[in-house]
């Protein structure tokens, strides 16, 4: 997985389908999804509630097992991946959730440090410094020893961004990161994500309802009833039916 090729897509999805439940209650939630995301792209996924956006996101993040079709993260097939492989993949993906999900008993710096502890190449001192730098980069250099309870909603979401990006992941998955924020903080958070991801060469997939932030995207894809119904024509890679030619 570490052998990243320049032109290899970060995410390559083909014929992906997914079901919930079993027996009579079995219900299909994703139908024959095709989607390719190139390195460095910022993709926004929109669509009404229940259209399967979050399910697709959790599949890409290796939080769920792929049932049918093919889903490749940096060339690694996740369909049939073991639990251990899934966990390994997660370590190369940053997540930002609707709720910040910071640990209330940890300071901002300790929270960010949790994102580094998984990567044994960092020494204790390095983790300490990098966590502080990451918080500096999101404009919280003067709040590094604050507990989440003493930070505003926007500040907490910025800590969450620092935590997601501190280990320099290849992919950042964000599920409605602005939903709990007011207009200005939401805007700031998205701009920050965009800037940092560009600096690190990180790919972003952002699920949102918030059409005030659509302009940060290189490409917008839309889902409805478990199908991808629009893949923005800015790039041609995702116009449907195109399977990754370099498995």
């Amino acid at each position: 997985m570490t052998q990243t090729f320049q032109n290899q897509p970060v995410i390559a999805i083909a014929h992906l389908s997914h079901h919930f439940g079993s027996g009579d209650l079995r219900k299909q939630v994703l139908y024959d999804i095709h989607l390719t995301i190139q390195a460095g792209e910022i993709v926004i996924m929109t669509g009404p509630s229940g259209s399967g956006k979050t399910t697709l996101l959790t599949l890409m993040g290796a939080l769920r097992s792929v049932q049918g079709g093919s889903l490749k993260f940096l060339g690694l097939e996740l369909c049939g991946a073991t639990n251990r492989q899934q966990v390994d993949v997660r370590r190369h993906i940053g997540y930002i959730f609707q709720a910040h999900n910071l640990h209330g008993s940890l300071t901002a710096r300790q929270n960010v440090r949790m994102g580094l502890e998984l990567h044994p190449q960092y020494s204790i001192a390095e983790m300490h410094d990098r966590a502080a730098h990451a918080l500096d980069a999101v404009g919280l250099g003067d709040r590094i020893d604050y507990y989440p309870a003493n930070l505003s909603g926007g500040q907490r979401q910025r800590v969450a961004i620092a935590r997601a990006l501190v280990s320099q992941p290849k992919l950042l998955l964000a599920d409605e990161p602005t939903a709990a924020l007011d207009r200005q903080s939401g805007r700031d958070v998205v701009t920050l994500m965009q800037r940092l991801a560009k600096e690190q060469g990180c790919t972003i997939l952002l699920v949102t309802h918030d059409n005030r932030i659509l302009d940060v995207a290189d490409r917008i894809v839309e889902m409805e009833d478990g199908r991808l119904i629009r893949a923005d024509a800015q790039t041609s890679a995702a116009t449907g039916g195109i399977v990754d030619p370099h498995p």
Binding site: G61, V87, V89, R91, L102, H103
Partner: peptide, 15 residues
């Protein structure tokens, strides 16, 4: 009380 945080850690790749 920490279920949500623990789930987040798992999503980050903690076993």
């Amino acid at each position: 009380a920490h279920l949500q945080e623990y789930a987040t850690f798992k999503a980050m790749g903690y076993r």
